[in-house]
Every structure is written in C-alpha cells, then in structure tokens.
Simulated scan of single mutants.
Amino acid sequence: MSAPLPTHIGNARARRTTLIVCAGFALFMLGAAFAAVPLYTMFCKLTGFDGTPMVRSTPASETLERTVTIRFDTNVAPGIDWSFTPERREITARIGETQTLFFRVKNEGSRSATGVATYNVQPDQAGAFFVKMKCFCFDDQRLAPGETMDFPVVFYVDPALAKDRNFDGLGSITLSYTYFASRNGKPLAAAESKPNL
C-alpha cells in the first residue's frame, strides 16, 4: 500500500487539473463563438430559417396555376452613398415560374465604393420556399463615382409551398435587400466604412 501524498503535492495537482479544465473550457467557448456565425449562416441557407432564401442552380420541376405577389424592398445602410431601386416594386408570379427582375444601383458619391447586399424574405417561414438561382447579392459590387449598374435576381417560389397547409392563405412575399459598404464580401459597420483622412 502506497503512502498518501503530502497535502501540498495533492493540492498542486488539484489546482493544475482545475486550471487545465478551465483553460480547455475557455478555448472551447472561444472556438464556439467564432464558429457560431458561419454555422448559423450555413444553417439558414440550407433551411430557409429566419427568412433566408434558398439557393439552387436548377428551375422548379413544375409550375402551378396558383399565384403569389412578390414585393421588393430596397434600402441603403449609412456609410455608402448609393441609390438602389428595383425596376418594379412588385410582380405577380405563378408558383414555380422562374422570374428575373433587375435592380438599379448608382454610386452617388465622389469616390469608388464597394458594397454587398444582405437580404431576407418576409414572412420568415416563406424563406424556405423562396429560391434564388442568380443574385447580385452573392458577390461584392464595385462602382466608380456616378456609375450606374443594373443587377439581376433570378428566382422562383418552390411549388412545395402549395403543399404546406400553413401557407394556404399566403398572397404575398416580400424580398428585402439592404446594401452595405463591404470588404471581402462582408458588410462593414458605418463607422468602419468612412475613409481615413
């Protein structure tokens, strides 16, 4: 039978074990914090959660007679001097029918600027059925002073929406965009987007 360890050695081991466990937990939490945003974004894109439209490269397998009105809302965040409007504020489309709509963006400022559009769908639950095939919002856009560009979005409403009883009375969906100053595809806060003098 081995002799018990002196108290000071046992206490040192306990403190070291506690320190290692606490440091490991802190590193785990730090890693979870960094992973949370990209994982949440990926989850939203895969499921349409929180009004995030789905992204697919192929058209719907069928087009239904049922129609839905699609409304377009455009905004520009502080920090980027752009104007931003859809060619039409709303359209009526058959469910499953591929649609293309253009948005006009103009740099009203005196400097070149790069922007990225964030987007969502209302009502939130309809995001799982709003499918984008092509969108200017997937990439940064750079405009010279006074430059105007027309950017398309190609989309459809998934026919699966018509099979979901929760959407029996749904008559309209709103697709909302907000342009932000950006760097490497990420929106910048208004304070970060101001030029250094």
Rank of each mutant, 00 (worst) to 15 (best):
M1W: 11
S2K: 13
A3Y: 09
P4A: 02
P4M: 02
L5P: 05
P6K: 03
H8M: 06
G10L: 13
N11I: 09
A14T: 13
R15G: 03
R15V: 11
R16S: 10
T17Y: 14
L19Q: 12
I20Y: 06
I20D: 08
I20R: 14
V21I: 15
V21F: 07
C22I: 15
G24T: 13
F28L: 15
A35H: 02
A36F: 15
A36G: 13
V37D: 12
P38M: 06
P38C: 04
T41M: 15
M42H: 15
C44D: 11
T47S: 08
T47F: 06
G48R: 06
G48T: 00
D50S: 12
V55K: 10
V55S: 10
R56E: 01
R56I: 00
S57Y: 01
S57I: 01
S61W: 08
S61T: 14
S61K: 13
S61V: 09
T63G: 02
T63F: 02
L64D: 02
R66A: 04
I70F: 00
R71Q: 06
D73C: 10
D73V: 09
T74R: 02
V76D: 03
P78K: 13
P78S: 11
I80C: 01
W82C: 04
P86T: 02
E87R: 11
E90D: 09
R94E: 12
G96R: 03
G96A: 11
E97H: 07
E97D: 05
Q99M: 13
T100W: 07
R104P: 12
R104S: 15
E108M: 11
R111P: 04
R111F: 13
G115N: 07
V116R: 12
V116W: 02
T118W: 12
Y119L: 15
N120D: 12
N120E: 09
N120K: 15
V121G: 03
Q122M: 07
P123R: 01
D124W: 00
Q125A: 08
Q125G: 10
A126S: 01
A126R: 03
G127A: 06
A128K: 09
F130I: 00
M133I: 04
M133K: 07
C135L: 06
C137S: 12
C137M: 02
D139I: 13
D140Q: 08
D140V: 04
R142C: 04
A144G: 01
P145F: 00
G146E: 01
E147D: 03
T148I: 09
D150W: 10
P152S: 07
P152D: 09
V154L: 07
V154Y: 02
P159Y: 03
P159S: 03
P159V: 03
P159R: 06
K163H: 12
D164V: 07
R165V: 11
F167Y: 03
S172D: 13
I173T: 04
I173Y: 05
S176W: 09
S176C: 08
Y177T: 13
T178E: 14
T178I: 08
Y179W: 15
Y179E: 14
A181V: 04
S182E: 08
K186A: 06
P187V: 01
L188H: 06
A190M: 06
A190C: 06
A191L: 13
E192Q: 11
E192I: 03
S193M: 05
P195G: 01
N196S: 12
N196A: 15
L197W: 14
